[in-house]
Design a binder for these strands. Structure first.
Lengths: 152, 152
DNA sequence: TTCATAATGCAACATTGTAGCGTTAACTGT
DNA sequence: ACAGTTAACGCTACAATGTTGCATTATGAA
């Protein structure tokens, strides 16, 4: 219900998985969001769409998506994982953590050219750049309510 | 029991806090480590030193240290906070997450010169660079035990 | 020494995530 | 279209990491 290129069902099937209600709904939810969602946010999303779901099944669906490379996982500053659809190939971009609403945004534009001199002995797999600050929508409400929207 | 500049007790007192057994021991433990420790690791450390302590008190001591800027907190990739003593002023260095033992190392040397063009509307407070890979001590044991040391 | 109160220590609870396991239903082959 | 296999579901229970409330202790100041 959003992508016209590969359908959620196709995406799932192409990775050798069974196309189930929950998986399709999860992919659609992640795909519709412009920022990674927590398990809880995905659950709320499914509820709104009247898709019955189980907490554990949701976790497993999300894990499976990550495992297949369909989604990726970012650790939030609260200790909840956030899941987002992988849109480019190796997923190499920065994340912005809003310290006000707690949301995480993918900044596709920001791709710092690392030229890092690692101390000897470390084997580098990948680098992650996390920017902390206040997101645009929170900036607008900073002087209003102390606790801002924060997508539920 | 390690710094000869300001003693742990002084550090605490100077920030307007009461000098208690647990706080002193926690500061000493963090100060003695070259990488951030989890709550659990700090607890183990205190036990070894025969310092009686309570789980909750420990959490509160750590939080207080962070609040006062004496320590800083890094989110591990497991969902456990890791605490480290603040050694320089604004704590601006990279962190290395070992995907094998789960430890986090502060790489004081690595201070990437960000010249980031943020998309409009974002207010940047600070940037965090996280490097993922395998740490030196794990590299040595990669071909041996599947589950490596990992400071307990 | 005395006193106010910051910190403690305990018990209960909250949140986020996993494990086990019997049941359901998605795909495959006919 | 049907039946069989088994991936995935949906429970329940549990684990790990924190947090809250509150009565008690003991730190630092007068």
């Amino acid at each position: 219900m959003s992508s016209q290129s590969p359908t959620a069902a196709d995406l799932i099937a192409n990775h050798g998985g069974r196309v189930t209600r929950t998986r399709v709904a999860v992919v659609d939810a992640l795909d519709a969001s412009d920022h990674p969602l927590t398990h809880d946010e995905v659950a709320a999303n499914l509820s709104e769409a009247d898709v019955p779901h189980d907490r554990v099944t949701l976790y497993r669906a999300l894990d499976w998506l990550v495992d297949k490379g369909i989604a990726h996982r970012v650790a939030g500053s609260d200790r909840a994982w956030r899941y987002g659809i992988v849109r480019e190939a190796p997923h190499q971009h920065a994340h912005f953590h809003c310290s006000r609403c707690g949301n995480v945004f993918c900044l596709e534009q920001v791709q710092p050219a690392f030229a890092i001199a690692l101390p000897g002995g470390y084997q580098l797999d990948r680098a992650e750049l996390i920017l902390h600050g206040v997101c645009p929508s929170c900036l607008l409400t900073v002087h209003a309510e102390p606790t801002p929207p924060g997508p539920r």
